[in-house]
């Protein structure tokens, strides 16, 4: 996808984020295990990975919330450890869990943050109402956050990150748990943000979201970057779509799998109890070949569908193992995704 910001990106060599060898261990759990990331100023960078992959921990180190155990990271050339105070002047952070004050109203939250950022009393009030207007929260401005919906909280959180108009914004799973409509609004907001020249680094569990928003993606798994590249490159490596099929006689599943792997030339996943096979597919047109091969091999299909690839398939292709603990929302997410694109 094309962003207006792409053309206006600063001269090459300006890295909004330049991290190498980042490590963070909790006890004997290497949550982040040697992560290298480089984000060019003016672009949207997606960090894609399942629950527990180390996305939040990585963002926390880049945003000076956690101290790396090893490795270095620079934000616009400033070291996150030695120049933490400077780095904080350059970033806005919207965490995975809303970091706003529950007891205060939306306006009070934004006024307090604005005052902390050095705005005067009147200026802070103006900024708060401007942002609330822009994020569709003007009507709820005076109510305490206790009765805000998840989506409203997220929007307020994002608004709070934009007070100082930071050139780099971290968004940790900005749409996890949001309903499809709110998610679409959030995507629009992020796109508008990028048009103003901000660099955005976002994490997500959804390939589709990274696809919609990011210029480049890093896929991380168990604290390591397992793939990095432009969205199109990455997708090409995964296949443009994924095949899901169920056969009538469960005992033939191994035969069916061999046929799938032969015809598509890719690895597949089986869930035997359901008699289901899933496999990435570079070219949807291969379905015809596959059907013929099944007929010839005597395998009868119960059900077949071609869907957009999900994180599971990306993982399978990139790491050779599936997502061990599929996020609770992954199937709901797929439905939402289709609604979105309908």
């Amino acid at each position: 996808m094309e962003h207006a910001s792409k053309g206006s990106a600063p001269q090459s060599g300006v890295w909004a984020v330049d991290a190498s060898g980042l490590v963070k261990t909790f006890g004997d759990n290497r949550a982040v295990d040697g992560v290298d990331l480089r984000v060019r100023a003016g672009t949207v960078y997606g960090v894609l990975g399942p629950n527990g992959a180390g996305k939040t921990t990585t963002i926390s180190m880049l945003a000076t919330l956690l101290r790396p155990d090893a490795g270095t990271a620079r934000i616009f050339g400033h070291d996150v450890v030695k120049e933490a105070h400077i780095v904080r002047q350059l970033i806005g952070v919207t965490g995975q869990y809303a970091s706003v004050d529950e007891t205060l109203s939306a306006t009070e939250n934004l006024v307090v943050f604005s005052r902390l950022l050095g705005l005067g009393r009147a200026e802070a009030k103006r900024k708060a109402s401007e942002l609330l207007e822009e994020f569709g929260l003007a009507e709820a401005a005076k109510r305490p956050l206790k009765n805000f919906s998840g989506g409203m909280r997220r929007r307020l959180d994002l608004a709070a990150s934009l007070i100082a108009q930071p050139p780099l914004i971290f968004l940790d799973e900005p749409t996890t748990g949001l309903d499809p409509r709110t998610r679409a609004q959030m995507w629009d907001t992020i796109r508008r943000l990028v048009k103003t020249g901000s660099t955005v680094m976002l994490t997500t569990q959804y390939l589709d979201e990274a696809d919609q928003l990011a210029d480049r993606i890093a896929v991380i798994d168990r604290g390591r970057v397992v793939a990095e590249g432009a969205v199109d490159e990455l997708k090409a490596s995964v296949g443009s779509s994924s095949l899901h099929l169920r056969i009538q006689e469960g005992q033939l599943i191994e035969r069916a799998r061999r046929i799938v792997e032969q015809v598509l030339g890719a690895q597949s996943v089986i869930s035997p109890e359901a008699g289901k096979i899933t496999a990435p597919m570079a070219d949807a047109d291969r379905v015809a070949d596959l059907l013929i091969a099944f007929r010839q091999g005597g395998v009868r299909l119960a059900e077949m569908s071609v869907q957009k690839p999900t994180l599971d398939e990306v993982f399978l292709t990139l790491t050779g193992h599936g997502v061990k603990e599929p996020p609770a929302q992954s199937s709901a997410d797929r439905n939402e995704t289709e609604v979105m694109q309908a």
């Binding site: 616009f76 933490a84 105070h85 350059l90 822009e134 508008r192 103003t196």
Partner: peptide
């Protein structure tokens, strides 16, 4: 979003420590 372009990171006046005055104001 904003009507005016962002000040790029490299062009901002940045300090690595909060002054005493700022500490008081923040408190």
């Amino acid at each position: 979003m904003n009507d005016y372009p962002l000040t790029p990171g490299a062009q901002r006046a940045l300090k690595n420590h909060a002054s005493v005055g700022q500490s008081l104001r923040n408190s």
